[in-house]
C-alpha cells in the first residue's frame, strides 16, 4: 500500500448519475483489474474505495455513481484538484485463470473493473465475450470501449431501452456463449444469480462498506467456505467456489 497525491485530469458525467474521473498518477503501485484505490475527499471522514477501470502510463481512470454525499462532493471537484489516494489495495481478477475464452458479466458500474481485465485478457490473446447489464439505456457505460476490444458484446437493460430486455442472466440464456472461465462484477444479487446460472469456473468481485481498505480494521468481513475473509484485502475478487452462493 502506498499513499500518494494524484491530480484530477478530468472529472465529468458520462451517464446518468455516473462520473468518470481521470487522475494523473505518476507511477502508482497498481496492477490488475479488480484492484481499487481509496480516495480521501475533503470534508468527509472515511475514504471512498473506487475500482480501477483503466490505467495508462501516468494516469488511471475510475468510474463512480454520484449517489451519496461523498461522491456528490467528489463530482464537484474541478480539474487540477489534488487528491490523497491510497493505492496497491485489494486482490484483483486473475486473467491467467482463463485458458482461451473468457466470459465477462457486468451489472452497472461492475463494468468498470471488468474493462481493465478485458484489456489484459486481450493482451494475452484470449477470446472475450462481454455481457453488460444496466437499468436503462442512459446508464450504459463503456459499451464502445468493450466493443472495440471484445469478440462479442451483449447489452441487457431492465426496461428494454437498449439490447435484451431483462437481466444479464436473460441475455446469457439468449446468447448461449462458449467460454472456459467467467468473471463477474455487479450487485451481489446479480452475481449470485450469475454464479448459479453458469456451469463452470469463475470469479466475482464483491462489494462491502469499507473502513481502512487495507485489511486491518475488519469492517468489510464476509463469510466464505473457508471462514471469515476481508473483502478489501482477501478480495474483493473471490473464486466462485469460495463463495457461499
Amino acid at each position: 500500500m502506498e499513499k500518494s497525491r494524484f491530480t484530477i485530469v478530468s472529472n465529468r458525467t458520462v451517464a446518468t448519475q455516473t462520473h468518470k474521473l481521470v487522475l494523473a498518477a505518476g507511477d502508482p503501485d497498481l496492477l490488475v483489474g479488480g484492484e481499487f484505490v481509496h480516495l480521501l475527499i475533503d470534508g468527509f471522514y472515511l475514504r471512498r474505495p473506487l475500482s480501477l477501470c483503466d490505467r495508462e502510463p501516468g494516469r488511471i481512470t475510475l468510474l463512480y455513481k454520484t449517489v451519496g454525499e461523498g461522491t456528490k462532493a467528489l463530482a464537484s471537484l474541478p480539474e487540477g484538484t489534488s487528491l490523497d489516494v491510497l493505492t496497491g489495495l485489494g486482490k484483483g481478477f486473475d486473467p491467467d485463470a482463463c485458458r482461451e475464452s473468457a466470459l465477462l458479466v457486468a451489472g452497472g458500474l461492475g463494468a468498470a473493473p471488468l474493462y481493465l481485465l478485458c484489456k489484459e485478457l486481450k493482451a494475452q490473446g484470449k477470446q472475450v465475450i462481454a455481457v453488460l447489464g444496466f437499468n436503462k439505456a442512459d446508464e450504459i457505460v463503456l459499451e464502445d470501449e468493450f466493443r472495440a476490444l471484445c469478440d462479442h458484446v451483449s447489452i441487457a437493460t431492465l426496461d428494454g431501452s437498449a439490447g435484451t430486455r431483462g437481466f444479464v442472466t436473460d441475455a446469457l440464456a439468449a446468447l448461449q456463449p462458449s467460454w472456459d472461465y467467467f468473471y463477474t462484477c455487479g450487485p451481489a444479487v446479480m452475481m449470485k444469480a450469475v454464479c448459479q446460472a453458469l456451469d463452470g469456473p469463475g470469479e466475482a468481485s464483491l462489494e462491502e462498506r469499507m473502513g481502512c481498505g487495507a485489511g486491518f480494521c475488519y469492517c468489510c468481513t464476509c463469510e466464505t467456505v473457508s471462514g471469515a475473509k476481508r473483502v478489501c484485502q482477501d478480495g474483493p475478487v473471490f473464486k466462485k467456489e469460495e463463495l457461499l452462493w
Binding site: 471522514y45 472515511l46 461523498g70 462498506r209 480494521c217 469492517c219 468489510c220 468481513t221
Partner: peptide
C-alpha cells in the same frame, strides 16, 4: 455488515 458508518468528523463501528 455493514459494520461502519460515516459521521461528521468521525465514524461509528460495530465490528
Amino acid at each position: 455488515t455493514p459494520r461502519i458508518a460515516e459521521c461528521e468528523s468521525g465514524m461509528i463501528n460495530s465490528v
